[in-house]
């Protein structure tokens, strides 16, 4: 972990911002309609949960 690299704000918040946007889209989509809209709502809110699963499986560092 002795990389000299440091991330800028944009890089630090890129993924969290996308996940937040997907969550908000999901929260609103399920409110707007039924059927397909509800499904888009589930997918939107699944994004943060999936991101955690991915991080816990793929991104563990020693």
């Amino acid at each position: 972990m002795s990389r000299p690299l440091t991330f800028g704000l944009r890089a630090i918040f890129a993924v969290p911002a996308v996940l937040a946007a997907l969550s908000l889209f999901g929260l609103v989509a399920a409110l707007i309609g039924d059927g397909v809209w509800d499904m888009m709502g589930w997918l939107g809110l699944l994004a943060p949960v999936a991101a955690i699963a991915w991080a816990l499986i793929a991104r563990k560092h020693r």
């Binding site: 440091t6 991330f7 630090i12 890129a14 993924v15 991080a55 793929a58 991104r59 563990k60 560092h61």
Partner: peptide, 15 residues
Amino acid sequence: YAPFMRRLPFGTVRV
């Protein structure tokens, strides 16, 4: 979150 993550890629968990 920003200062903590300056040197860590998103999702890093140092186990």
